[in-house]
């Protein structure tokens, strides 16, 4: 697994927030909130702590999207970044128990559909029957023996 040299909690969460497009102000505010939460919860596993917050909300936002959680999380990150939502909804997303309705609507409006829903049906395999000279010869020889 990729080893990360700098391992302090603030550094990692800070980088994580920056990767989501947080500017300095929103980052400090949100970071302070998350550090507080982290300590309150008895300093659990860092990945579990972050994923837990995101996954819970992502599941709710994309409840109608039939994807696994890693895809939904990636979708969330994509929309969050491409629509530059950090400044407007960034802190609230982490701090509020229930995400803002406008935020949810915006997220749902921008769901990416790389492919339409599958409607499986199978093409039957066709038979291309080439005459087999060997088989034909065998038949003739067999008939003679009879």
């Amino acid at each position: 697994m990729v080893a990360i040299k700098i391992q302090s909690f603030e550094d990692i969460i800070g980088a994580f927030l920056e990767n989501l497009g947080f500017g300095d102000n929103e980052k400090q505010k949100t970071l302070a909130f998350l550090v507080d939460e982290y300590n309150k919860k008895g300093k659990p596993d860092l990945a579990f702590f972050i994923n837990d917050i995101i996954h819970r909300k992502v599941k709710y936002i994309f409840e109608n999207v039939d994807w696994d959680i890693s895809q939904k999380t990636a979708l969330f990150k994509y929309i969050f970044l491409s629509k530059k939502l950090a400044s407007k909804y960034g802190y609230d997303f982490f701090a509020k128990e229930q995400p803002d309705e406008k935020f949810v609507a915006l997220m749902r409006e921008n769901v990416l559909n790389p492919v339409p829903p599958c409607c499986y049906s199978e093409m039957p395999r066709q038979v291309i029957a080439s005459p087999h000279p060997g088989k034909f010869l065998n038949k003739v020889l067999h008939m003679k023996r009879d």
Partner: peptide, 14 residues
């Protein structure tokens, strides 16, 4: 690239 990172990850299972 953050956007490409998330889009690529999103599309792997597809």
């Amino acid at each position: 690239d953050g956007i490409m990172n998330s889009v690529h990850i999103m599309m792997i299972p597809i």
